[in-house]
Amino acid sequence: MDVFMKGLSKAKEGVVAAAEKTKQGVAEAAGKTKEGVLYVGSKTKEGVVHGVATVAEKTKEQVTNVGGAVVTGVTAVAQKTVEGAGSIAAATGFVKKDQLGKNEEGAPQEGILEDMPVDPDNEAYEMPSEEGYQDYEPEA
Rank of each mutant, 00 (worst) to 15 (best):
M1E: 00
M1Q: 00
D2Q: 12
D2W: 03
D2T: 02
V3Y: 14
V3L: 10
V3S: 08
V3Q: 14
V3G: 01
F4Q: 00
M5T: 05
M5N: 06
M5Q: 01
K6W: 03
K6D: 12
K6V: 02
K6C: 02
K6P: 00
K6A: 09
L8V: 08
S9K: 13
S9P: 01
K10R: 14
K10S: 03
K10C: 01
A11M: 15
A11E: 00
A11F: 15
A11Q: 01
K12E: 01
K12W: 03
K12V: 13
E13V: 03
E13T: 13
E13K: 02
G14N: 01
G14P: 09
G14W: 05
G14K: 11
V16I: 09
V16R: 08
V16E: 13
V16A: 03
V16L: 05
A17R: 11
A17G: 03
A19Y: 05
A19M: 09
A19S: 03
A19V: 10
E20L: 08
E20V: 02
K21R: 03
T22S: 03
Q24S: 07
Q24W: 15
Q24P: 01
Q24E: 14
G25D: 13
G25F: 06
G25A: 15
G25M: 15
G25C: 08
V26Q: 00
A27N: 04
E28L: 11
A29W: 07
A29S: 07
A29N: 08
A29Q: 10
A30W: 01
A30N: 02
A30P: 00
A30K: 04
G31Y: 14
K32Y: 04
K32L: 03
T33C: 15
K34C: 02
K34I: 12
K34L: 02
K34G: 03
K34R: 12
K34A: 10
E35H: 14
E35G: 07
G36V: 15
G36E: 02
V37C: 01
L38Y: 15
L38F: 14
L38V: 09
L38Q: 09
Y39I: 08
Y39A: 07
Y39M: 12
Y39E: 02
V40W: 03
V40A: 10
V40K: 02
V40L: 09
V40S: 04
V40D: 00
G41L: 07
G41K: 02
S42K: 15
S42M: 07
K43G: 03
K43C: 12
T44H: 01
T44C: 13
K45D: 00
K45S: 01
K45E: 00
K45V: 13
E46Y: 07
V48A: 13
V48W: 13
V48I: 09
V49L: 14
V49Q: 05
V49M: 11
H50C: 08
H50T: 15
V52N: 00
A53F: 00
T54S: 14
T54I: 13
V55F: 15
V55M: 10
V55I: 14
A56W: 03
A56C: 09
E57D: 13
K58R: 12
K58V: 09
T59W: 06
T59L: 05
T59F: 09
K60C: 02
K60P: 01
K60F: 11
E61D: 15
E61W: 09
Q62D: 02
V63Q: 00
V63H: 03
V63M: 06
T64A: 04
T64L: 13
N65D: 09
V66T: 05
V66P: 00
V66I: 08
G68D: 11
G68T: 10
G68I: 07
G68Q: 04
G68P: 08
A69T: 15
A69V: 08
V70G: 02
V70D: 01
V70W: 10
V70T: 03
V70M: 14
V70N: 00
V70R: 00
V71E: 01
T72R: 09
T72H: 09
T72D: 10
T72N: 07
T72C: 08
T72V: 10
T72W: 14
G73F: 02
V74H: 00
T75N: 09
A76Y: 15
A76P: 02
A76S: 04
V77E: 01
A78G: 09
Q79K: 15
K80I: 06
K80L: 14
T81V: 02
V82D: 01
V82S: 13
V82R: 15
E83W: 13
E83D: 05
G84M: 09
A85N: 02
A85D: 04
A85R: 11
A85F: 11
A85L: 03
G86P: 02
S87D: 15
S87H: 10
I88C: 07
A89D: 06
A90M: 03
A90E: 05
A91T: 13
A91I: 12
A91S: 06
A91K: 05
A91L: 06
A91F: 05
T92L: 14
T92G: 06
T92W: 10
T92P: 04
G93V: 03
G93T: 05
F94R: 15
V95P: 03
V95K: 00
K96N: 05
K97Q: 15
K97F: 07
K97E: 02
K97A: 01
K97Y: 12
K97N: 12
K97T: 06
K97D: 05
D98A: 08
D98G: 10
D98M: 15
D98V: 12
L100G: 15
L100Q: 12
L100E: 09
L100K: 01
L100N: 10
G101L: 06
K102P: 01
K102G: 11
K102A: 00
N103M: 05
E104F: 14
E104T: 07
E104A: 02
E105V: 13
E105W: 03
G106S: 08
A107E: 09
A107T: 12
A107G: 04
P108V: 07
P108K: 07
P108I: 10
Q109K: 01
Q109W: 02
E110T: 12
E110Y: 08
I112C: 05
I112L: 05
L113N: 01
L113F: 14
E114G: 03
E114V: 14
E114K: 14
E114H: 08
E114N: 13
D115E: 08
D115I: 09
D115M: 07
P117C: 09
P117E: 03
P117T: 13
V118W: 05
V118P: 13
P120W: 05
P120S: 10
P120T: 13
P120V: 05
D121W: 14
E123Q: 09
E123S: 11
A124I: 02
A124R: 10
A124C: 07
A124W: 08
Y125V: 08
Y125D: 05
E126R: 12
E126A: 13
E126H: 03
M127F: 12
M127S: 02
P128I: 07
P128H: 02
P128Q: 01
S129F: 05
S129P: 13
S129H: 02
E130Y: 07
E130A: 06
E131M: 10
G132K: 13
G132I: 14
G132E: 03
Y133A: 09
Y133F: 04
Y133E: 06
Q134W: 14
Q134H: 03
Q134S: 07
D135G: 04
D135I: 07
Y136L: 10
E137S: 12
E137M: 08
P138I: 04
E139R: 13
A140W: 14
A140K: 13
A140Q: 12
